[in-house]
Simulated scan of single mutants.
Amino acid sequence: MSGITTSFFLIFAGAAVVASLALYTRQPLIIAYIVLGAVIGPYGVEWVTDLKLLADIADVGILFLLFLLGLDMQPRALIDTIQKSTVVALLSSLAFASLGIGIAFLFGFTLVECLVIGAAMMFSSTIIGIKLLPTTVLHHKHTGELMIGLLLLQDLIAIFVLLLLMAFGLGEFSIMDFSLTLLSLPLFVAAAFAAVRWIVLPLLRRFDRFHEYIFLVALGWCLGLAEAGHALGLSAEIGAFLAGISLATSPISQYIAVNLKPLRDFFLILFFFSLGARFDLGLIGEVLVPAMVLATTMLGLKPVIFRYLLHGLSERNSLAWDLGFRLGQVSEFSLLIAYMAAGSAIIGREASHLIQATTIITFVVSSYIIILNYPTPIAISDKLRRD
């Protein structure tokens, strides 16, 4: 068998085994995939070693997740939600960054490393937040709209941070290039909606009898805008989300969403596997104490800060706590910040692994908190299980 075929066999056969064990022992499936990656990855028994390829493939899962989210977000409702969420997103990001910087400073990291660690703490996981939210809540209720608004604003802040890291990683920073990248966003949005109105939807209406054609156009549109977003410096994730939103007003959007879910889940298994596999277990002793302190701080204070800020917007107390705990972890964007900053020699290996370890710890603990206390599609309790 070829290398990629062997890797896929080991990953998905192993995922089937650990998923069965997780279900029998009432554990979250997400945790099982991360553990599998740590065990059979290059820092475990070394059965799967081509992590760059797998990580690239796994990133496609995130794109499909965001594309499907966009398909269920009406543009007008999204704009209203973002307007309400802006203050919460900015103040919470500032608070989390300050906490991260302060803790990193106490453990003796350099000023630049403290700033990068603080920046990585600002965001919550789109994957954890959305995957553990019931579909009916995500698509049709205020909780889902508010979560999407907050996560989208955080993604925009993350893109801003990544642009800064790319600029400093190249050894130069151009205000002009940076401003042009940010200004390209509204033009990108306008071009996407124009293309849907005048090209994509007419094609879908003309050939809607051919289901394979609809599938191909949807995939091409999602990945095409993702590539365009990357080329403009805005990130592939923003492009994929915009691809979904631009199609959301079409009656065919729900058909596309239903048919792409299995493909999304395929890639997300690879994402969680690669998350566990890319962490060097040999460095755990060096970062365990600061990672535990940082993770505990984020897990303890993120829900409180979100609750306080959301309640200040006249949101119900129960809804504010619900969203606070669902957004109480660190983000996959934090991992990207760690990889990029370390690759550009902006931070050292220890600081990068501190961010990675903190992210994994918060992923694991936050998943347990949500699954044991709030309605989710994969809840252990039948009472809390909601599709």
Rank of each mutant, 00 (worst) to 15 (best):
I101E: 04
V161I: 15
F109P: 10
R278M: 11
L162E: 04
T81G: 13
I62W: 04
I62H: 04
L242R: 00
I40F: 04
A77R: 15
I148G: 03
L65F: 11
D50P: 09
S314C: 09
A119N: 05
A345F: 15
D72T: 14
F207C: 06
V200L: 07
A119T: 01
L54R: 03
F266S: 04
I337W: 07
A55K: 11
P75A: 02
L151W: 12
L150Q: 08
G108C: 05
V45Q: 00
L165R: 10
R316K: 12
P202H: 00
L301A: 07
L150S: 08
A345S: 15
S93V: 04
R326N: 02
T81P: 11
D280F: 07
G312Y: 02
G102P: 00
D50A: 04
K131C: 04
G3Q: 14
F266E: 08
A16D: 07
Y308C: 06
A194G: 11
G285R: 14
A95E: 01
L201T: 12
L270N: 07
A195C: 11
K261P: 13
F210S: 11
D56F: 09
S98Q: 04
T81K: 14
L94K: 01
S344H: 15
S174V: 08
F267T: 00
D177Q: 12
A338F: 15
V48A: 10
L51A: 08
V39P: 02
R316Y: 01
W198G: 00
L150P: 13
L187F: 13
L294E: 00
Q74D: 13
H140E: 13
G239N: 00
L384E: 01
I175M: 13
Y368Q: 01
F273Q: 09
C222W: 05
V17E: 09
G343N: 13
L63W: 02
L234E: 08
A345T: 15
D59F: 10
L323A: 02
F64Q: 03
D280L: 04
A379G: 04
I40K: 08
A195K: 05
L294S: 13
I360G: 02
R349Y: 13
D265S: 10
G118F: 01
R386N: 08
P75R: 00
L225W: 00
I346G: 11
T49E: 13
I34M: 08
A190D: 12
V189L: 11
C114A: 12
R278S: 15
Q254E: 11
C222D: 03
L151K: 03
L225K: 08
A218S: 04
V365T: 02
I82F: 10
L163G: 14
S179N: 11
I103T: 03
G285S: 14
T181C: 07
L187W: 05
L288H: 05
K383T: 12
M166A: 13
A248E: 02
S125V: 02
E46R: 09
V17A: 14
E237M: 14
G229R: 06
I214K: 09
V116L: 11
S352H: 11
I245W: 08
K261M: 09
A104L: 07
R316F: 06
T181S: 10
S366L: 00
I30R: 03
G324M: 05
A341H: 13
I214R: 10
T6Q: 14
